Amino acid sequence: MKLADVQFLAGKAAEIRLNLLKMIFKAKMGHTGSSLSDTDILTTLYYDVMQLRVDEPDWEERDRFILSKGHAVESYYCILADMGFIDKEELNTFCQYQTRLIGHPNNKVPGIEMNTGALGHGLSIAVGMAKAAKMDNKDYRVFVLMGDGEQAEGSVWEAAMAGAHFGLDNLIGIIDRNRLQITGATEEVMGIEPLVGKWRNFGWQVLEIDGHNYGELKKCLSSTPVEEGKPTMILANTIKGKGVSFIENKAGWHHRVPSASELNQAVEELSPLIGVDIDG
Rank of each mutant, 00 (worst) to 15 (best):
V144S: 01
Y140Q: 06
A133V: 08
H121V: 09
V189L: 12
E90I: 13
E113I: 09
D136P: 00
I172T: 14
F94V: 07
A118W: 03
A133I: 06
L101Y: 03
V73T: 11
T186Y: 00
A81T: 09
P105M: 11
N92I: 00
I192G: 00
L67R: 06
F166I: 07
P110M: 10
G149Y: 02
P110Y: 09
K69C: 07
N137E: 14
I175V: 15
I66D: 01
L119K: 03
S75R: 00
E158Y: 09
G122L: 06
V156P: 00
F85D: 06
E188R: 14
I86Y: 05
W199K: 01
S68A: 13
G184I: 11
K138S: 12
L101W: 01
F94N: 03
W204E: 02
L119I: 13
K198Q: 04
I66F: 04
R64W: 05
A72H: 03
I175L: 12
A159Q: 03
A159H: 04
V142T: 15
N115A: 15
T93C: 01
L91P: 02
G70W: 02
N137T: 11
L91K: 05
R141E: 00
G117V: 05
L171S: 07
G103V: 08
E74C: 07
I174K: 03
P110K: 09
T99G: 08
G154C: 12
L91I: 11
N106I: 08
